[in-house]
Design a protein around this nucleic acid. Sequence first.
DNA 1: CATGAATGAGTATTCATTCAT
DNA 2: AATGAATGAATACTCATTCAT
Lengths: 209, 209, 209, 209
Amino acid sequence: MRADARENIRLILRAARTVFADRGYEVSIEEVARRSGVGMGTIYRHFPNKSALVEHVAVDVMAEASAEIERASAEEPDTWAVFTRVMRHMAQLRSSQMFPISRRRPTEPGPELKAARGALLADFDALVARAQDEGLLREDVTVFDLVLMLNSIPPRIPDDGADEPSADLAARHLGVLLDGLRAPHTETLPAPAADRRDIDRFFRTRFGL
Amino acid sequence: MRADARENIRLILRAARTVFADRGYEVSIEEVARRSGVGMGTIYRHFPNKSALVEHVAVDVMAEASAEIERASAEEPDTWAVFTRVMRHMAQLRSSQMFPISRRRPTEPGPELKAARGALLADFDALVARAQDEGLLREDVTVFDLVLMLNSIPPRIPDDGADEPSADLAARHLGVLLDGLRAPHTETLPAPAADRRDIDRFFRTRFGL
Amino acid sequence: MRADARENIRLILRAARTVFADRGYEVSIEEVARRSGVGMGTIYRHFPNKSALVEHVAVDVMAEASAEIERASAEEPDTWAVFTRVMRHMAQLRSSQMFPISRRRPTEPGPELKAARGALLADFDALVARAQDEGLLREDVTVFDLVLMLNSIPPRIPDDGADEPSADLAARHLGVLLDGLRAPHTETLPAPAADRRDIDRFFRTRFGL
Amino acid sequence: MRADARENIRLILRAARTVFADRGYEVSIEEVARRSGVGMGTIYRHFPNKSALVEHVAVDVMAEASAEIERASAEEPDTWAVFTRVMRHMAQLRSSQMFPISRRRPTEPGPELKAARGALLADFDALVARAQDEGLLREDVTVFDLVLMLNSIPPRIPDDGADEPSADLAARHLGVLLDGLRAPHTETLPAPAADRRDIDRFFRTRFGL
DNA sequence: CATGAATGAGTATTCATTCAT
DNA sequence: AATGAATGAATACTCATTCAT
């Protein structure tokens, strides 16, 4: 692969991540191309279709999240500190990109996405189990709940000049969630209706991918 | 107004509410028509354009939420019981419809929507203040935080026959949130970056309306 | 036929004539109904479709034109005075309605229209021949030229309050035409490419009917 | 700009001019695309909307008319010859395209259109004034009358195979008009109801643009 | 390889016509 | 007989994807 091609892929992925975060998965490929500084055709050379681009961004974000779990586990002495740091990191990755929502007809995710997702879920689940074992995290939540919660944190809205009052909202939202997740708890959660064995189906119905 | 016309409006609003909840604001009018059992033209007879239909649904939902605040306040002896009941109700109204999200160019909301929204915010804010005064609800959240939180609760995904494992997720999510909202709390929230005086702008940037 | 039905037909035709004149043949039936003060269904009770309504208006106007030819011939001593009076009358009937222009797929005109058109053409042709025989009207124009000319006179544009500068334009246009039609003349006209035997086809391609 | 794109623009404009002339401004973009031999999307790549396409065609035609005024003024020795040549040229440009008629809600014309229209009116007005000063053209007509007259000349109707008897009609119509415009004259025209200072308004109410 | 022009299926909206009230 | 609500075909416009330059 030529150096400029590799560089273009980098540019595309960086722009896509930003623009998907700012304006959602529904932005046109032309917009992504404009922000990348490359032509539309270049995007299609490297990604067979729009879903593939979205998937690639998602895979990158998931890999970063996995890495952060590992890093935090190594660096933080306290399991709750690891957990909150990971949660904050994932929230900052702009969760709406991590598990991109599209109401369109869902597509079957590619193997890379499945792999990255599986790895992330496994890593995250291990952390969750550890925090629960230590009595820090309430017992009645699962990694699936957490993924949905992270995904629900409102994305930053890009300020178009004026005083955009949104920068803090995500952090405040996350703070409340963390307090709610800490053991012990008062509210009793209804039991999960089903166990979440069919991960793919869960994500496919929840998200576009 | 003829009886059948009134009935059709009811059918349209009911179908629109469901289909918007299930598949988002981006569904085509044709789909709404199909699910209503009426023709597309019938929808356009009663609603000048798609935005008007969305607004009408949103106004209905908000009015119901306002009514529920009043009803719960009258019926429940305990302020926290009022609060949780209202939160549960609003979550069940499928919050994603209450404040419909669209990433498209936002349109200026009509006066009915502004009125319903203003009324709901005022009613809800009074309840929030009461709960905070009584030391039940953490002091550092505002009605805007709550609106965003409600809106973030994952919508029910329609089960297409198979074992849809989502029915419980919303309730679980809300349970965690409620625990996080209860005073006292551990996490310190960052101060709001700005006060939310420009309600219209807040909603316009956050949601499509 | 009930008296109210007959009255409704009158109302419809009157409104249709005005609104077609003001806003063209493309106005919706709903608009015609609104201006008539009757329901859309009533129009369709009396006229099988929109073309039929247009035809009926056209037939009425043509009949009036025929009547005016007869009346003017009886009242005016001078043939040129007859001719100009008829031309002015037909221009005032708002020629664009007399032969309504529609660029849509032309429909086969009904027998009434053909009859009224044939009668008018015959009457008008007789007048033209008389004026030409007396050396008043240039020899090289035919009744078909005149019909097209009348039809080309710009309709009055309804003034929406402001100072509409159009009231006089039609009269000025007609004045120039009449001077151009008077014998003798300077310009030599190209010979007609074909004789106009297929009257129906001529009108069908020229106009919508 | 790529060569094929430039070629496509040329094809589109040529087809649009013809099809607008033949069937009016109301033809669908799909029809224009079919006749151009390009896809609909290609038209929208080059023209943001239908009005822009219509305007572009109109601007082209007006520019050609302006050029013809200049050319004729340079080449013809006699002012009346210049005038008739220009009139014939403008009639052949198919006046219905020069000032496109649409009964739909008029749109504000773009700056290019206003400029081209203003330039053409100025050039034409100078010629009219010259012809009137030399006593060749009747004094009581204005450039606005002439524009409307040109616009009233019936467009060529495309012959769909059969013997279309219309090729000569426009020339005959114009001949009569020219005779009517030549000084001296017999008919007295009513004074203009208003002077035509608001050119934009005049065109906007008369035409669609 | 990169570019961006071309394509055409999909969507919101209008309106002639039908039909239940 | 009158009404106006219901229908759905037609049309402007968008955007994912293909392909000529």
